[in-house]
Design a protein around this nucleic acid. Structure first.
Length: 760
DNA sequence: AGCACGCCGACT
DNA sequence: GTCGGCGTGCTC
């Protein structure tokens, strides 16, 4: 008796093992099996009876163990993984591994969830000051740490002391060695979402919301709905009412959100409505906690999984609905193999399980929009904000001429990029935006400011020769950060001390150019000294729950101005926010990427939607140098339809999605010429392959160096495969990946990204 | 991806 | 004379 087993190896084939007489549990497709591989063991998934012909001449090895009574992968999930393997052209074992919690992919038996944390506790109290002096003498660091610990009530987490408070572990070790402090592992159950209570009574749905809920609830299994609702139109309530019906029928549901840490408010509402029926799957869960949630869903103890991308694999029993909130968000695409898009997987899974899918967005992706237009999805629209709220008025401030179009008379605005040294208030905030901010502060209302670039200055340039400080590992300018003061590469995280002179010519004057959130924070603090300003970008939210903390402060009214990068544009619902300012709408609009306009429109629309969610109404001010660009114009009018009308034609020639399907083939290596040569060779290889087939079902574009031609010391080239029909693209791409030989030198690699979300 | 097998430099 | 560098080849 032979068994076909998928293993998580980068090989496009399965393995055949012998089934021993006695196994702990019967084999069902989807069962985990422990098998011998080379000299060690590996965990694989049993797929079905094996084919003796696939064995070489060698005798098959025998399966060692079948550790689970029930298959870990349900038939529907197995079908989904087969689809992922086929569509994204990855080995089945790789797709299966990413569908299971980490604990189940190792050979070790899963353990119950226990999160431990190292905690330092004061063991000996030092009463007199004299005593202190004697004990610490020449150890001021130890004394400082000891006293800090006392001020924390005698105990604190070790990583808090070392990471946040920047104490060296050796200082702590010294205290421990002297018996003053004790360090222990403590079991903690600190899931911040576990304790967050949701709002008690959800609002009553409007007639429009109710109609949408009824339409979706009556949907056939596998049917997909595109819920297009303007910001503040109450899409979340539609999801909640839908899930109520799904649960009433005894079924379960998955809710996907772009990044769970950024949308605590949305998560709270599901928690509030469904209590502990909800498993929140977020990145801070330990492997054990994740496994616990997996089990609870699998057993039907919890019926709703809420989480980011990977929650689409949650083993919800009897799945009735999948919600993809903010379906246009690029975080649904996994950046590494398997490079799946959770929205597409959701649709495939729903079809396999007879569930309905809801894709919700105020600014749907062009792909989803055309699918709705062609009848593939059913379009549902929520055209109005709930509770009689109006969409905010949006005004554009044209930075080119420095003359606001409004009645206010402002001075001519200098171009920030030609300012010398530090920028001034006038170079960053137009008079009108300053007045609007002052007005909100005076009235006790809140403002949100968007600048989609973190750091202090975008780059540093020599005043003499014009040389820009670049990363030694990537072909990217280093960003100047002020706290801590260093140059940072936003691609590979390389950091180096700030330069005092030009690295090329030795010139002494280095100019900081371009604007980052840190600098705007400084400028705001100067201009509005009394205002309480919070900055939110990946630099301030490094610690696990910092996002949630900042947003909680805003919700409690402890912040007057929330300044941040795109992470403040998503899903926030603060009724007291009456002003949204976009400091520079142009960031990113001219990137060499076919989705640059779409992303800009989405960002502007989403951030504008944060204003005027309460009875006081709201206003949006957008500063830009390209006021005539359709992404800006259409966002100003809240006119999604007009944006699509102008954007779609530009995707026809040269053809880009949704007019065609894309695969981006990236060739990378540590040697510049070897990489370029391989890219050339691979493209020629595909060219010949395409020439053999009649017609132009698949076209090749390139090869060319990637827009960022070096990342993390690797040179990068790419070419594109375009096709009208997805099946043709699959065939060509699969044939290429399986047959084209990549030489094993200079770290050469070929990666294929199907339906790429960006070409950078 | 790992991991073993296999041929050439600087150490006891 | 060995210890070990990482090039290449295979995994039922």
């Amino acid at each position: 008796m032979l068994a076909e087993v998928a293993l998580p190896l980068p090989l496009f084939r399965t393995f055949t093992y012998a089934v021993p007489e006695r196994l702990r549990h019967p084999l069902v497709p989807g069962s985990r099996v422990v098998v011998p591989l080379r000299t060690g063991k590996e965990v694989g998934i049993y797929l079905g009876p094996g084919d003796p012909r696939s064995l070489g001449s060698a005798a098959p090895k025998a399966i060692l163990d079948a550790p689970d009574a029930e298959p870990s992968v349900t038939p529907a999930l197995l079908a989904v993984c087969r689809w992922i393997a086929d569509y994204y052209i990855v080995p089945l074992g790789v797709a299966l591994r990413c569908a299971l919690p980490a604990l189940l992919t190792g050979a070790a038996a899963p353990e119950p969830a226990q999160r431990t944390r190292r905690v330092a506790t004061v063991r000996r109290h030092l009463e007199s000051l004299l005593h202190r002096e004697r004990i610490f003498g020449r150890a001021p660091q130890q004394r400082a740490l000891f006293e800090l610990l006392e001020s924390f009530g005698g105990r604190a987490a070790v990583d808090h002391l070392t990471e946040r408070m920047a104490f060296s572990p050796s200082v702590l070790k010294g205290l421990v060695a002297r018996g003053l402090v004790e360090v222990r592992d403590e079991i903690v159950a600190r899931d911040p979402f576990a304790s967050r209570a949701g709002s008690a009574t959800p609002p009553v749905p409007s007639a429009e919301q109710r109609a949408a809920v009824e339409a979706i609830a009556a949907g056939r299994g596998g049917e997909t709905f595109l819920l297009h609702g303007v910001t503040g139109s109450g899409k979340t309530l539609v999801y909640i009412e839908l899930l109520r019906q799904v649960l009433a029928r005894g079924r379960g549901a998955i809710v996907l959100v772009p990044e769970i840490a950024l949308t605590p408010q949305t998560v709270d509402r599901f928690r509030g409505a469904f209590g502990d029926q909800v498993a929140v799957l977020h990145s801070a869960l330990s492997d054990g906690e994740r496994y616990d949630a997996w089990l609870a869903l699998r057993r039907g103890e919890k019926r709703i999984a809420v989480g980011a991308r990977s929650a689409i694999f949650a083993p919800v029993a009897d799945l009735g609905a999948v919600v993809v909130d903010e379906e246009h968000e690029s975080s649904y695409k996994q950046g590494e193999s398997p490079r799946y898009h959770a929205r597409e997987v959701a649709i495939v899974r729903a079809r396999a399980e007879g569930a309905v899918v809801v894709l919700g967005s105020a600014t749907p992706s062009l792909e989803s929009w055309t699918n709705a237009a062609s009848g593939k999805y059913r379009l549902l629209t929520l055209p109005e904000r709930v509770g009689g709220a109006r969409l905010p008025a949006v005004d554009v401030i044209d930075l080119r001429v420095g003359i606001p179009r409004s009645t206010l008379d402002a001075p001519r605005l200098p171009d920030p990029s030609v300012e010398r040294g530090a920028l001034t208030v006038e170079g960053v905030l137009s008079r009108e935006l300053q007045l609007a901010l002052a007005d909100r502060i005076e009235k006790g209302e809140q403002s949100i400011l968007l600048l989609n670039r973190r750091g202090y200055a975008a780059y540093v340039q020599c005043n003499n020769c014009g040389d820009v400080a670049t990363c030694p590992n990537c072909s990217i300018a280093l960003t100047y950060h002020r706290t801590p003061e260093q140059l940072v590469c936003h691609y590979c995280l390389h950091t180096e001390p700030p330069r005092v002179k030009c690295a090329r010519c030795g010139g002494p004057t280095l100019r900081q150019r371009g604007l980052g959130t840190q600098q705007v924070e400084r400028i705001l603090a100067e201009r509005f000294p009394a205002a309480r300003i919070a900055r939110m970008d990946v630099d301030t939210t490094g610690a696990k729950w910092a996002h949630t903390e900042i947003l909680d402060r805003v919700a409690r009214g402890e912040v007057d101005i929330l300044l941040g990068t795109q992470m403040i544009a998503k899903g926030l619902d603060f009724p007291n926010v009456t002003l949204v300012g976009v400091i520079d709408a142009d960031t990113g609009i001219n990137l060499p990427d076919f989705r640059a306009s779409e992303r800009c429109f989405q960002l502007l629309s989403q951030v504008a939607g944060r204003a005027g969610r309460g009875p006081k109404g709201g206003r949006v001010l957008i500063q830009t140098r390209v006021p005539t660009h359709h992404a800006v114009r259409c966002a100003v009018r809240h006119d999604y339809g007009a944006f699509v009308g102008e954007e779609l034609p530009s995707r026809m020639a040269p053809a880009y999605p949704p007019a065609v399907r894309l695969a981006n083939v990236v060739i990378s290596g540590t040697d510049e010429t070897a990489t370029a040569e391989l890219a050339q060779k691979a493209a020629t290889w595909v060219e010949r392959l395409l020439a053999r087939a009649p017609g132009d079902a698949v076209r090749l574009v390139g090869p060319a160096p990637c827009p960022v031609e070096r990342i993390k010391q690797r040179w990068r080239w790419h070419f594109l495969l375009k096709a009208e029909r997805p099946a043709e693209l699959t065939r060509v791409a699969r044939y290429f990946l399986e047959r084209f030989a990549v030489p094993k030198r200079a770290g050469l690699r070929v990666a294929l990204d199907r339906d790429p979300v960006a070409l950078l």
